[in-house]
Design a protein around this nucleic acid. Structure first.
Lengths: 349, 349
DNA sequence: TTGTAAGCGTTATCAT
DNA sequence: ATGATAACGCTTACAA
């Protein structure tokens, strides 16, 4: 391995000078071009590469961020990670250490500690829908580095967070169906304890009022936590159909629920959207190639990730300047993405 | 920050002793239990956490592996990553630094270097279908640490690799269709330059011979590299239908291609599987909730990842013992996953 | 403009 | 059984 001392020896300057030149430090400005050129050349010739790990003790900068996701095979997580990596590339110099806790709450704390042991300068963590705000605070209370939570609004400092305006998302979805002329609309909501599901429902109620739409309790069903959302969407939709409640549209908790609903509808001989329109939530990649392509509400996950990183880097800068760190919260507007699973109510039904 | 010196001072022993105890080094065995207990307790009380980064200069072990994927939103990649993380958790102590090159070849080299600067002890890289073996060798030729390539057979040392038996996979898919009684089968192959597509085709030819099946050139079409596979599958299937070539089954390059094909078939009024059976390749998660759920060939991506890590760790151990590193190659058997998109040929058509 | 030397937190060597 | 001390590769006050 070629060290900075090897370079220094080879070009006849001290390690200090070499360090200055190779890091473009402000001290390097006072060095003559000839020196710099010489240093750089010998470094190049020797194939010198600075050891990024050992920089940290003196500089106090590991240039590593920790990212904790709850399921790396979940499209929601990977889209956020995509955004994270984009922001990191633009910021330059920082890398992420990505950890998957595989939906195992106990691992969260354990892995957070592991990342801290590895001297990450900050932590960005994706909240899954069933972890509560106070739990997160409890777990993260003695973490010394800045933290940003993605996907859940954290109201208490010092945690910052970035999330989607779920209420607006719910409203957007219902508004779309109303504007198409639907009045008999079924709702497959998320499990009762899910924060985001509650927020979405709030938006739906508000929007229903705006359109003078009466919500029929018989057309409102809730997923259970134990089921997969796809299975749940399928089962609940089948039940709705069996009960013979007529409806011309269905608003699902998320895209997977919507996929399950479509399967149930088709099996019952109901075409989508000819017999029933279906709207999802999230806009996972599979929506665009589903059969039919799914109308849904996009959470713009990549922006969640990239802006989350920007917030985190900002917090890290503040922490360095000993500014006190207040928690801040960003709420992104969701976007309605209209595809082929929604249409005006047909004649059938 | 609490350092090992703080602990030493607090408990009255030297840093050496503390280090021995806290690392359970063999030297610690000769220490009396009382000492060890005392050290451990003060460490606990002070909340001491060893700085994992600075261990590396002396121990020569960063305990970091680099993982390079070509698209972190691609289900193939994330499934492999899932396997990687599983293996890492079991192995303990190692973490992965995951880098997404976003299908940008130029970034491969750049990021590989970045990872090496960060002292990764080994590299595991997922090959995408359009990078060639010699390219990979060229890029990785002066990488000093052990490397394992996932998803592409590398025949030349010192690179090791682990991949799926694509020929067997192709054969498996066709055999399934033949056994169902199909004789008029359409093939949407991958782009000509794709290694895996060629391998699969080899298996298909072999299997066709075995079943005495004549392959009709009019029913064989190839995707173009520029198109998305979903789009390509859709377009090519539409063309096949327009040409009026009768076929009762379609074997697609991969799952996305199959999804596109199903969309085209349905739009033409052909039911799946009632009018035409469709088989994909990969078994991405979307297959199980597609409409209809897709019969496909599983690459068992998680095993690709976990076994890949095991190979890499093995290589790292060998490298430490100065054993010379020969490249090794593992080829995993694919698995046929039968779902609802295939059936015996119907009466229609 | 350049160099010396101290330090970062750890582990390894060697002595006691 | 325990401790001094050097070393790892780098950055950075301070000195010249």
């Amino acid at each position: 391995m070629v060290t900075i001392r090897d370079v220094a020896k080879a070009c006849g300057f001290s390690t200090t000078t070499v360090s200055f030149v190779l890091n473009n430090s402000r001290m390097a400005r006072s060095l003559p071009e000839t020196t710099k050129a010489h240093v750089r050349q010998t470094a190049g010739e020797l194939g010198y590469r600075p050891n990024a790990l050992v920089k940290s003790p003196r500089s106090k900068q590991s240039k590593i961020l920790g990212a904790i996701v709850f399921d790396i095979t979940d499209p929601y997580c990977t889209q956020v990670l995509y955004g994270i990596q984009n922001a990191l590339r633009q910021a330059g110099s920082y890398v992420a250490m990505i950890i998957d806790i595989q939906s195992n709450r106990a691992r969260f704390k354990q892995y957070a500690r592991m990342l801290l042991d590895r001297q990450v300068e900050g932590l960005i963590a994706l909240a899954n829908p069933f972890v509560r705000e106070d739990e997160l605070h409890e777990i993260l209370k003695d973490v010394a580095v800045p933290v940003v939570i993605v996907g859940r609004e954290m109201k208490k400092a010092p945690l910052s967070s970035i999330s989607t305006d779920n209420a607006e998302g719910g409203a957007l979805a219902l508004q779309h169906l109303c504007e198409l002329g639907h009045r008999r609309i079924a709702f497959v909501r998320g499990p009762r304890t899910f924060v985001d599901s509650g927020e979405r429902w709030g938006g739906i109620i508000e929007c229903a009022a705006r359109f003078g739409l009466a919500l029929d309790r018989m057309l409102i069903v809730d997923l259970k936590r134990e089921q997969s959302y796809y299975e749940g969407g399928y089962e609940l939709t089948r039940q709705l159909l069996e009960q013979g409640q007529g409806f011309t549209a269905l608003l699902a908790y998320d895209d997977l629920t919507a996929f399950g609903a479509i399967t149930a509808l088709n099996q019952a001989g109901v075409g989508v959207p000819s017999g029933c329109s279906v709207v999802g939530f999230d806009d996972m990649p599979a929506c665009s190639y589903y059969n039919p392509p799914l109308t849904t509400v996009s959470q713009t996950m990549d922006r969640l990730g990239s802006l989350g990183v920007e917030m985190l880097l900002e917090k890290i800068r503040n922490a360095k300047e000993e500014k006190q760190n207040v928690g801040s919260h960003l709420m992104l507007k969701p976007k309605l993405v209209i595809r082929a699973s929604t249409a005006q109510p047909g004649k059938r039904f």
